[in-house]
Write a protein that binds this DNA or RNA. Structure first.
Lengths: 124, 124
DNA sequence: CACAATTGCGCAATCG
DNA sequence: TCGATTGCGCAATTGT
């Protein structure tokens, strides 16, 4: 924030022009000033354009991520159901055989979560 | 986009003031003008503030969605591994029993995708 | 028609 | 010195 009150109403970087030479000094200095102003105006446009682009891209990004998220969410749902189904099938069969064991594995424990030590054998 | 060349350099909504009354007409009209300008300047600030807020929120949104996405991605990965493991276990056992059948279900087909008609029984 | 909100733009200060 | 940013005001335009 600008606290300097002199900010308001301050004029261009006037380089102490005066009546030194009467009329002619306005030429090169004004030209110079205008040139600088014009260049800055271009820079401003450019900068603001870039900002707008970034903002736009960010909005697009949000849309894409939301879509991606939905897909993943659906995937998780599907996989969970699949797993649930298999788990039930598993347990149903297990109860008909060896009191809770299947292939020598404790199904309840197995199906609670991923067996960490088994992941190495799943080198996809 | 502005195509009207007269746009550039146009002055305030000057209401045809002149020398009608010499000095006094500047008072109320200028006051009115200033009031309008001030109000607009406030509106501009407000509007730009809102825009900034929205933009900022959008950036935040992207971050959150990215994080959410990673979690979901991880979840899918985990569930997939789990499923893969069970499928192998399943098949291994099945081959030891009834030539590919388990509980009367064709495992290969079952494990390819979610059995749609079974979902109704999974009312969780 | 009045008024707030939005938008394009230029100026000047400041940053890098 | 010079382009890039940023805060700010003005005026045109749009929306209520």
């Amino acid at each position: 924030m600008i606290l300097d009150a002199s900010y308001y109403g301050v004029m261009p970087p006037v380089k102490q022009r005066g009546s030194r030479r009467g009329l002619s000094d306005a030429d090169d200095e004004d030209d110079d000033y205008r040139k600088r102003r014009d260049r800055n105006n271009e820079a401003v446009k450019k900068s603001r354009y870039k900002t707008k682009q970034r903002t736009q891209e960010t909005f697009t990004r949000v849309s894409k991520l939301k879509a991606e998220n939905q897909v993943l969410e659906e995937k998780v749902k599907t996989l969970t159901k699949e797993l649930q189904f298999l788990k039930e099938l598993f347990l149903a069969h297990a109860s008909n055989t060896q009191n809770g064991k299947f292939e020598g594995v404790d199904l309840d424990k197995l199906l609670e979560d991923v067996p960490e030590e088994k992941q190495s054998s799943n080198k996809k």
